[in-house]
Design a binder for these strands. Structure first.
Lengths: 327, 327
DNA sequence: TTGTACGCGTTATCAG
DNA sequence: CTGATAACGCGTACAA
């Protein structure tokens, strides 16, 4: 069954293709009567516009490419939701791809997306080099970066204020009376961890507490990593601020297995607020990252870019403390 | 900066557009030397093919639409991953949309996707009426349905064998010595719940156990729902088979709060194996649905359809028992 | 108010 | 082996 084209409905009505086109898009001068007839016929024949043909002409496909490291990482579904919902409100479709934090995959994905003539790109935790992003920008590609803070003139990004989050979490632990506080984290080479760590350090200093190197532990981002890191310091500290909820839960498991009372003997604060942290059995106190909001803002920033070629936006979202049972 | 077109590289080389096209696609007779020259020039000029113009001509965009009820439902990210990975292997892009189980949203989404000339559709847990699916089929649209078993001639689907899963879970509980076993579930009107329930009933019968209506509880699919349902039967049964992990965890919370030993006093088996069920603190015994595999199979079934217009495939995946701490 | 003619970037057909 | 030419479906100056 062939699709109905403008031409088909034009012939059925004895009109020209352009008249039909105008009637359907309501552009230019056209009689109300013609509009009515065309619309009726279009409905009757089940006309469905060919958006890609339109895109070829108008140079706008209303498609946006979304690159995510890994959709099974529990912080991302909510983020994706924010993007999908907002895109849908604005009449855009999202083409999604996983990059697995592989710079090469990312490059290929972007080429493929641009080849498909997407109107814009959302790059999540991109590994692309600064130079590459500048090049992309100079080609006139519209894009927004999230979860990576970078200062390239004209490049927009949306990120969480990791420093502020680290500061708030640590300060809260201090407020509850803890003075011996460890930080366990992963990938200290990466920006998010570095900034959360800086927030932790600053909060300790501001409160006249000493920074102890041996209380700052690096391990991998996993339950096991959190467990191991906790093992190294649990005998010596009263509280743990973890880089993320995964590691915090690892700490929780350690406490559980070693019959440490939480939070009395060992208080634990995480970061992210992944869905399971709020389960009654877990009930983790943590810094919530507004991931839905991040997705929403990312898309809205992008639409502004696509429409007005407006200047760059830099958005920091504040994480909020979710007080629950572990601190 | 305008994009480089075939025409640009043709002019730069003093060739015709069609020759350049053939050189790049290596179709038809063309000299090796020309191919070399064209490819070099293309690289040099940074040529990126315009897939949507190509699609207009070839009537194939290599895009596939994916409809999912809700990507934040923890069973779906893995599924989406399976689809994304497989699509990528086959050189396809995925346009993803949430439907929120809303039939109308689904209709709109499909129209919009077809308007974008996708080559195929994957409909997850679709609410569309049988009649609508048949209509879609008769229009020649390629699509695969997942998580809904339906017998429409020529329509392919991939689903988990819910009956088998329900049977296996119940049988396992019986094997561990339990005889008083409850089923807690939600949406008994829906097929998955009905089939799992049937499996439960059959397993009881096959083992000479009685079916007790008051041990079959319906409530909503949430922690609270599972908690409430458990509350109603816990005093009377030794084991609970839950429709899904969410409800099973609700049951677990109930047991936890009421100091019931799990699994001695109350054994619990879930369904899904969502990521958190394997956490040491949760450690839920459950029927694992192979969601990645389901996504993979769905896409592969679809490619077959798109290529050969091959006959319909009906695939049932077997869920597998994950023996952990709660049963 | 409507129709004609052309172009968007690509591929397919048919001559040469 | 290569080049003109005609589509693909739609939008838009320009002419009527």
């Amino acid at each position: 069954m062939k699709n109905i084209r403008l031409k088909d409905i034009a012939e059925a009505l004895g009109l020209s293709v352009s008249t039909v086109s105008r009637a359907l898009s309501r552009k230019g001068k056209i009689s109300v009567e013609t509009i009515r007839r065309v619309e009726e016929k279009a409905r009757e024949m089940g006309y469905l516009p060919n958006s890609i043909a339109k895109g070829l002409k108008t140079r706008s496909t209303h498609m946006v490419g979304l690159l995510i490291p890994d959709i099974t990482n529990p912080i991302f579904p909510e983020y994706a939701q924010g993007i999908l919902d907002t895109a849908s409100e604005h009449g855009y479709q999202i083409i999604m791809l996983n990059t697995y934090k592989d710079r090469n995959k990312e490059r290929m994905a972007i080429l493929s997306l641009l080849s498909n003539q997407v109107d814009g790109l959302i790059l999540t935790s991109t590994k692309l080099l600064r130079r590459e992003l500048m090049e992309l920008k100079s080609k006139g590609v519209c894009f927004v970066v999230t979860r990576r803070e970078l200062r390239i003139p004209g490049v927009s990004f949306v990120d969480v204020d990791n420093f502020h989050g680290g500061y708030t979490a640590t300060e809260y632990l201090i407020e509850t009376g803890k003075t011996r506080i460890a930080f366990i984290g992963s990938r200290f080479s990466g920006e998010p961890a570095r900034r959360r760590l800086k927030g932790y350090v600053k909060a300790l200093k501001d409160n006249g507490l000493q920074i102890r190197e041996e209380w700052i532990i690096e391990d991998e981002s996993s339950f096991e990593g959190g467990y191991r890191a906790t093992q190294k310091v649990a005998h010596d500290v009263e509280a743990i601020f973890a880089y993320n909820d995964i590691m915090a839960i690892g700490a929780l498991i350690y406490a559980f297995e070693n019959h440490l009372n939480v939070p009395e003997e060992l208080a634990i604060v995480g970061f992210d607020d992944i869905p399971f942290s709020s389960l009654p059995i877990v009930n983790l106190t943590t810094m919530r990252q507004p991931m839905y909001e991040m997705g929403k803002q990312a898309f809205e920033t992008l639409t502004n870019l696509m429409k007005n070629q407006a200047g760059a936006h830099r958005i920091w979202l504040k994480p909020t403390l979710m007080k629950r049972g572990t601190a």
